[in-house]
Simulated scan of single mutants.
Amino acid sequence: MSLPVDDDSAINEVFQLLTAVNNPKGVLRPVENGQVLVPWTQYTAAYDIRNRVLYAHTYDNRNVRMLEFGNPREWDKIHYFSFISRQTYEPFAEEN
């Protein structure tokens, strides 16, 4: 259903489309074994397969972050990355 996009706007378009199926905290409350569960979309991710890049944001931080995987033949050890971070807010820039 998306309109055609170029490479520069493709990732943004993917996140816009995936937003339509996100579940906010509290919207689903199934009961399992007598306990109410509260599932939600904890993170949303998109992959650029050609360039080997992961783009993702979490429920608590909508700033999209990216991880470049590079060439797997050059991987020599396990790397760990922080995925959890606080949401930041930027002021609008005034224009004349």
Rank of each mutant, 00 (worst) to 15 (best):
E90M: 10
E95H: 15
E94N: 13
R62L: 07
Y59V: 01
D48P: 01
S9I: 04
L17T: 01
W40H: 11
T41C: 02
L37Q: 14
Y47H: 05
S85N: 10
P30T: 09
N12D: 07
I84F: 00
V31Y: 08
E95S: 11
Y55T: 03
V14P: 00
D8T: 13
E68S: 13
A56V: 00
A46M: 02
A46C: 03
W75F: 01
H57Q: 08
G34Q: 03
D6P: 15
R86Q: 10
A56N: 02
A10K: 15
Q16N: 15
R62S: 05
P24D: 10
Q16L: 11
N96Y: 15
N63Q: 08
P91G: 04
E90N: 13
S82Q: 15
T88Y: 02
V27A: 10
W75S: 00
I11D: 02
R50A: 04
R50W: 05
E13G: 12
P91K: 12
Q42L: 10
F83T: 10
E68F: 06
L18K: 13
I84M: 05
L18N: 05
T19S: 14
P30C: 10
Q16F: 14
Q35H: 13
Q87M: 14
T44S: 05
V38D: 12
Y43D: 09
R65Y: 13
V53P: 05
E90Y: 09
D60R: 08
R52F: 03
E90A: 06
N33D: 14
S9R: 10
R29F: 11
P30E: 11
N96Q: 09
E94M: 15
V31H: 11
S9E: 12
Y80K: 07
Y47W: 07
H79F: 12
N23F: 09
L67Y: 12
Y59G: 01
M66W: 14
H57N: 09
A45K: 04
V27K: 13
L37T: 08
V14L: 12
E13W: 05
A20T: 11
Q35F: 07
D76V: 00
